[in-house]
Design a protein around this nucleic acid. Structure first.
Lengths: 417, 417
DNA sequence: GTACTTCCTTCTTCGGGAGGACAAAGTTGG
DNA sequence: CCAACTTTGTCCTCCCGAAGAAGGAAGTAC
């Protein structure tokens, strides 16, 4: 049982958070609209916005040209450039870091390509922490970092950001989050999320899936990861390891071998290598560029490439059909490399959905391609960094200011190692 | 965004509901324990219990022999025999109705076997409504019916209790809930739930799955239904049609034909007929008794029966492995006819789990057999009937009393049609 | 310029929960 | 059997958050 809405302070805290979240996600909302959406009185909205304004989180402006009768409602916007988070993204083929402002604006970013082969924890964290310090150094003074978030292409223990299983780098039980936090030296914890989990959140909050309370997101890179939104919240499971739809067995007989040691997993049948092999191009192509080449060949009419996309689509369709039967979602979103693959495979996917999904569940489901492109995961990481602030704005600010105070007192030189 | 914990009244309502739910599920809880579990002050618990006591929902008693130092805390129990719900259960092979008291005690019940072949909506509703009237007639005066709930072995539209797809009876879009409500004539809506959904809830609240926040429940009868608890709540999806794990495709090549029109669905590979066919007994056995016969034969050492269970277990294992990868649950529960099948198939299931589930997700998962037996679904239906009361106790009581008033005023003869 | 609409702001009221003080009811130990 | 200790029940006051009414402000419509 969750403890109900306990004391009044908790209410205030939650309402402040909810209001800030609305502003953060919408960019600009009028007070009257906030009152409507949150089901609160005008007076209450006044009190809440006043508190957030004086905290420096939002600002209020007169709108221009409402066009409607009556006194125009003040518009609440996130205060630009006063608070930000650091977002990190460890992808299969590159490392990305960004400074993201309240409202979700990417203020600055750094990027490095990386070899697909194994990499050392030290190296990866070193590059990312370097990016982080650089981003902070170039921040105009007065802007405070209120959180950090990281996306990683592997299985993560949410409690401490440990990489349980990262097939691309060959990592097993590496303390990624803790280590990155230590190297950043900000005194902030670094929550880490699986790339597909965070992609799902991002598409749900800022992508094609806005307003969709039940959403299945498939993220393709080397394998296929998943993020599933159930009732507006990410499905995480007991340990945070849920949504592993890439290892759903779809081909129990002559399944292709999978990284995980099994055979016939969805990701073995529809991943990069499956597509390239199916197109008969395993000699000359590989990786994301390989996938692009096959897709482009198919668009030009190449029969082998088209046939390969169809074959992938059939397996993908089985997986998607199973997922729709299980989750009865309002939308299925294809992201990562599947964004490019899906259009050429859509017919097969749809026909599997038609054949295998019960009518009631397929009546209203929409199949879409990711709207946020390659930066979905980065956006998700940023949201992870904002999560605490949106849950309890004043508390996070107090902590942040306390931390800034002690740091300034302790040393006058910047805290880069 | 859900509107936060709005006004104070809403808090009070939720706290009353939460307290009543604790009492309902635990049977008897001390006030100090309630304060602990709900995170509320002693004074508040006092106020809440006082309100529920004066409403007649609970009573407080002196405990006997606490054994601990200090003044003994008063024990709060559900008031017996003052409020009840009607629970209905449409199973594959029988119709069940029961009067269930607060706390989950079955006070009285009626049951009728039914042919497995198609049945008319009118007939089924007629029998159930008759049971309902009979149960109410034999209630001692002063006991009020505060809700109704029904379980149905098919796909249900939760909004109005319409059976979208009921393969066993050949029903499509039949207004079961509405019709049963009309025939009962209580002025109460009749929420209807899928049997496996409700089974999952029941096992989660009163069965092996108490305290397990992420739980997968598989319910076997002719087919295989599913109910999945995610973060303590039933996964329903956009239309309430989620959890259809029975139509997960596990055998895309030489799959057995399924009721749904497809082939290779989980329920086609592990359902009653699959087992009986696999045992080579399709000539002389069928239905639930057929399953029992095969299981008993296997227990006596019959090789064909044992082999059949192993084969079923292998397919079941694929399905279960997929589910564990997707949901990372704390427990998987086998109910309905799977309760009998599972022990003889466990080795195969476990070996599939071992082979196909990623380590992190299988570290802690437990596989168990249903604890509530054949009445899981009935228990779930009762909980459905109690749901409103537990969400807003005083409101439901007010409505109930108002209804009782108007009914008594309108007619002096009982309201049986 | 007047009527109308919609919103902002202030002030008061209401209600829920926390917390302290004291009484009550049990155990423990002599 | 009594005193010390522990834990809880009950009462009372305080605090705080939200609602709601009233009056003013800032737009549009005609």
């Amino acid at each position: 049982m969750t403890r109900a809405g306990r004391s009044q302070e908790e209410i205030r805290q939650r309402n402040l958070g909810a209001l800030l979240r609305h502003v953060h996600l919408a960019g600009a909302v009028s007070r009257s609209e906030l009152a409507d959406r949150m089901g609160l009185n005008r007076s209450t909205i006044l009190a809440l916005t006043a508190e957030l304004t004086s905290a420096g989180l939002v600002r209020e402006e007169l709108p221009r040209d409402t066009g409607r009768a009556g006194r125009p409602s003040l518009v609440v916007r996130p205060e630009p450039g006063r608070f930000h988070v650091l977002a990190f993204d460890v992808r299969v083929d590159r490392l990305v870091a960004a400074r993201v402002g309240l409202g979700g604006v990417v203020l600055d970013r750094r990027e490095a390509v990386r070899q697909r082969a194994g990499a050392d924890l030290e190296d990866v964290v070193g590059v990312l922490a370097g990016f982080g310090h650089d981003l902070l150094r170039r921040t105009r003074p007065g802007s405070l970092c209120v959180g950090v978030g990281a996306a990683y292409c592997g299985m993560i223990r949410p409690a401490d950001g440990t990489v349980r299983y990262g097939p691309n780098m060959g990592w097993v039980d590496q303390a990624f989050g803790t280590e990155l936090g230590r190297r950043l030296g900000l005194g902030l914890p670094v929550p880490v999320g699986n790339e597909a989990h965070l992609g799902a959140l991002a598409e749900h909050q800022r992508g094609v899936g806005i307003g969709v309370q039940n959403l299945v997101y498939l993220h393709g890179d080397v394998g296929v990861g998943g993020g599933i939104i159930v009732g507006g919240k990410l499905l995480d499971g007991d340990g945070g390891y849920g949504c592993e739809l890439g290892h759903m067995m779809v081909n129990p007989y002559d399944g292709r071998p999978c990284e995980c040691g099994s055979r016939g997993c969805l990701e073995a049948e529809v991943g990069e290598r499956a597509l390239i092999d199916a197109a008969g191009r395993s000699g000359d192509l590989s990786g994301r560029e390989g996938v692009r080449a096959v897709v482009e060949a198919a668009e030009r009419g190449d029969p082998a490439a088209r046939e390969a996309l169809h074959r992938i689509g059939d397996w993908l369709g089985i997986g998607v059909a199973n997922l729709i039967n299980l989750f009865n979602p309002g939308m299925v979103v294809f992201g990562g490399m599947l964004r490019e693959v899906y259009p050429g495979s859509a017919a097969q996917v749809l026909s599997r959905v038609e054949a295998n999904v019960l009518v009631a569940s397929r009546e209203r489901v929409r199949l879409r391609v990711s709207a946020l492109g390659d930066d979905v995961t980065l956006a998700g990481a940023a949201e992870l960094g904002f999560a605490k602030l949106l849950a309890d704005p004043l508390d996070v600010l107090a902590e942040t200011r306390a931390r800034a105070g002690t740091r300034r007192r302790r040393t006058l030189t910047p805290t880069t190692s």
